[in-house]
Design a protein around this nucleic acid. Sequence first.
DNA 1: GCAATCTGTTCTCTATACCGGAACGTTTAT
DNA 2: ATAAACGTTCCGGTATAGAGAACAGATTGC
Lengths: 251, 251
Amino acid sequence: MDAKNPVRTTEKTLTLIEELMTKEPCGVSELANDLEMGKSAVHNHLNTLRTHGYVLKEGDVYRLGLKFLEVGGHSRKSMEIYQIAEPEVKSLAAETGELANLLVEEQGMGVYLMRAKGDEAVDLDTHAGLRTSLHTTALGKAILANLSEERVETILDRHGLERKTSRTVGTREELFDVLAEIRERGYAVDDGERLEGLRCVASAITSSSGEVLGAISVSAPANRVSDEALHGALPERVLSAANVIELNINY
Amino acid sequence: MDAKNPVRTTEKTLTLIEELMTKEPCGVSELANDLEMGKSAVHNHLNTLRTHGYVLKEGDVYRLGLKFLEVGGHSRKSMEIYQIAEPEVKSLAAETGELANLLVEEQGMGVYLMRAKGDEAVDLDTHAGLRTSLHTTALGKAILANLSEERVETILDRHGLERKTSRTVGTREELFDVLAEIRERGYAVDDGERLEGLRCVASAITSSSGEVLGAISVSAPANRVSDEALHGALPERVLSAANVIELNINY
DNA sequence: GCAATCTGTTCTCTATACCGGAACGTTTAT
DNA sequence: ATAAACGTTCCGGTATAGAGAACAGATTGC
């Protein structure tokens, strides 16, 4: 939903920020061309952002500053789910030796709040703050399974059902079947749907009132996760960690 | 240095963001009062930010969204120093069992890029993105010691010499003495200057051309760091980790 | 070595759009 | 019931954003 009276100047600033994020260091003229803005406008916006620490100038090129990390880090730190889940996700990674993740939903997308690597963990490109479609990961599906069907429809309307690999769930019907299955057994599984050869087990974290707060997962290469483990020891661990988090959140 | 032709509308947006960071969830009227803006202006700005994911509305209150974490996470991930130092900082934490940190300088301030906790680590409030005066931490002093005297003066002119505890270095002269000492022995020490009872050892990370890229440290409670360790085993570990990082950066 | 063409920055002027203030519909408190 | 808050919408006067031109400096091509 768009704002009724959008502040166009602010939107230009935000467009500039997003362009800087994808292009990284670049100059005024390049940005002006790409965004079809005048050079003076780009220059004024960049320098306004610069005096506030959001943008840095190195020689003749501009790039994003760490102010965004400051604001983002502050937001994350103030989230109860992060404060409580953080040590548990780390334990989960240490105990399994694999990669553990914490995801929350925001505006219909999944946002990774953190990841923790065990000794043997694969190195995925999931850094804190990264966004992902909910239907493409076990984490996201664990969350979707705990939302109302109506809510899920709304999310799908907004973000669609983009495919990541040939195994990604392709239709709404298929997705709802998967979600029902997840609700039944209590955890979600990703068997190479997001990345070939990667297996992943996730569980939602819910408040005492049944509201979803987020999800945690363990990801490991298929050759280290037997079929038995995928539906036995691994989900047991993940569910246990989720349980501890839920207990701590509800005091 | 202020921009020549600042974009005032953008500045209002940024002010709003910073107010939201300190106040957390709050409504339109409260923000309008605090910032001496009209309600409609605040409303328009908030909703513009909202359609771009930077702000969320929960009921009748607004708060910052995780978009900032996305942008910040992206910036951090694209920094060479982070990519290379990350595993080493984690090792440092694991081996010492204490808290290890990575700091870089930006606009005369120190910015924590990450922290890693060992098994016994104290839990400080140093989260990723947090800013700190350079002269108040061992990390910052390790960086200052590798900057030109001129650069250091400029930074002090901009940010002053705020005291954190009674032990914080209080005058420029004192600071320059400390920095000379750091250059001589190769590492910086903080013995309760930032926080009573906390000892900290840090080393700068420099490129092959001698430019400072950042600094790493280990922090531990005084009762676990003997006077010998503070100038023996601990700096040895930190320096060794810094060395590995420097080697990896210069291929 | 000179001209041509980049670059980022500064300046001016006006069409634009930001936003104060008033009105609206709800919700909460008295 | 009444009042006082809230968030949201609307409108119109006016501050200002930004196109375009001109600038200085760097780099290029011939």
